[in-house]
Design a protein around this nucleic acid. Sequence first.
DNA 1: TATATAACTAAACAA
DNA 2: TAGTTATATA
Length: 759
Amino acid sequence: MQHYLDELNTPQRDAVVNTDGPTLVIAGAGSGKTRVLTYRIAHLLEKGVRPQQVLALTFTNKAAREMQHRIAAIVGEANARNLWMGTFHSIFARILRIESEKLGYPSSFTIYDTADSKSLIKSILKEMKLSDKEYKPGDVLGRISSAKNDLVTPPAYARDVARMSADQAAKKPLVYEIYARYMKHCYQAKSMDFDDLLLNTNILFRDFPDVLQRYQQRFQYILVDEYQDTNLSQYRIIKKLAEGHQNICVVGDDAQSIYSFRGAKIENILNFRNDYPGYKIFKLEQNYRSTQTIVNAANSIIAKNKGQIQKNVFSEKESGHPIRVMESYSDVEEGYRVADDIAERRREHHYTYQDFAILYRTNAQSRIFEEALRKRGFAYKIYGGLSFYQRKEIKDLIAYFRMTVNPNDQESLKRVINYPARGIGSTTMDKLEAISAQTGYSIWQLINGYTPEQLGINAGTMKKLHGFVQLIRGFGMKLLDSQAADLAREIATASGIMADLMADKSVEGQSRAENVEELMNAIREFTTNKLESGEPARLDVFLEDVALLTDQDSEKPEDNDKVTLMTIHSAKGLEFKNVYIVGVEEGLFPSQMTIDSEQGVEEERRLFYVALTRAEEYAVMSYAKTRYKYGELKNSTASRFIREVDSQYLEVLGNSPFTSPASRPMGIPVRQPERPAVPSRFKPKASLTQRPATPSIQFNYQTSGGDYQAGMLVEHERFGRGVIDNIEGSFPNTKVTVTFEHSGTKQLLLKFAKLKILR
DNA sequence: TATATAACTAAACAA
DNA sequence: TAGTTATATA
């Protein structure tokens, strides 16, 4: 049973068998990090450590599940099941549910998502008579979140000079007050947001030493994955838990730290040596994932960053295909070129859809690729963006579930107290909210404990409110002894949501009803799974799963053979044979918001490094020269990151990104494409694939038809390039017929269409 | 009070 | 462009 050690190289094996004492594993991209973590845990169990004594914190729940599977294969199912393994948020939510009463929370507390938090901030602004123009809920939430991640409570915030003066400067001097009220409201609603899960764990361990001690003794071995992306709050939890035995193993790669925007501190991994003086360090430097070209190219760009842990990542695979640099005229054309390239590689190398990923900096870029792939009839899946659980109809139903578990959950109550319509309007709700803020009682408590006179509402309204209360109470009574699937079905029906959706015969209405059915199926599946493994299948357990889902977790089995579309952030930890990094343009990647700080650009560069190292065999960096931003067409230029990659690893198609006048490194070889980038069936009569040697930037605005002739190659700012088929009519109503490369044949009025003559 | 339409405004990454 | 909010109207 020891043979798994034979599958490891020397540093990997060392990292597995040196189980005791503080351990730092620096794991370069693709260096078998997961394998080391898995085997290290298996090794611990084989040495006789009990699974309950092992705490392993992973980046996604999916990663935890997969690891658990592999461990089970080595040490057996029964053993693996009792490991404490999951994301920071899910593990500490679990502990908080056990210990919540010490903090004054019921164990049924709700977990607020970002939308709930924003909505709560909006009502606080209303309560404080502040404008949500000056105090944008998203910004305020960001400030609060950053404070929590740095373990700064409201009183400390008010004393924190740096924070207070930053707020002053931003013309938001009252953030500290909003923060204080926000905390109070959450507490009243028996709710915690994501950051509270970690903050409250810190408070629990700080104020209840006996509780801390208990968990210190329970978790004899602690492992943390992606340590470079932990924030102060997470760092402290780990530090406290490991205090006694110091059996802590952290795994990470400083070059892949990409979450400083949510408070992650790259210093945590850089300072490990100071925190745990007797530490051992193991460096995993052999990359088993990617070709030499990809690894070397990635190294050449990350070398531009300062202050890194010294390491030498190398690959012994074949040198492989050069990294392709792809230029497009517009964002739309970029979509087609990527789709075309996928088609070509599929044809010539027999790849399947799942071998491809399109990675972008922002979710907003996904739509264009979605369309291009759909027109091709390619199967694809999109991660992130508006997820299933963020759709209105799903959130509505979930809000009922949440009310059933925790009726004080005020955000859920506000969401559904009048959906479906019960005649409880904004007038009534405004009154109740105001009294709730004044008295500190939740709306639910007000309805239950006050008379209509005290609340200033009439008896009829009160009756409606009580009707709602009875409805929710009825669900609540059944919570403990019914299965999630049955109760969910009953809630959907009895609440009137089902009927409301069924009544809507429109296309959207039907799809909403289908979504609700899909949710029901998911709950049914959850229920059978839990019952089979002998665990409770209650609705509150289901809610916990849903609240802490990561975007990688929500994968469905039918999603196997599909092209993957996702942000680079969500691609972390994944790998694909072919990777397209798209929108590699100044102002987009690196993002405009980071561009004038050295630190900001360094993080973007690490993000680029992550993107490139996802590729096993083939990578493309693509950029477009024009792109729609905030609804208008903007020019853009190739990103500095393209220039920063050592050019010996590149294959440049079409125009060189290096010839832009701003910056031109000398002597960069420009390779010509071996074949036209656009396959022949996309070519109209004239050849569109050849670019003019020096494309003119300005558009022609002539209104006479005189300059245009049939057969000309022209460009339209929306439709892209095309050939003029015909010209008719006379000035000023000259009409042209153009067949566009990707947009079909269109008739355009010359005085409106800005057609640029290419040739 | 509920709903439809018009007008406005903001626009990264995420548990 | 898209998502949200204000306004009108029944």
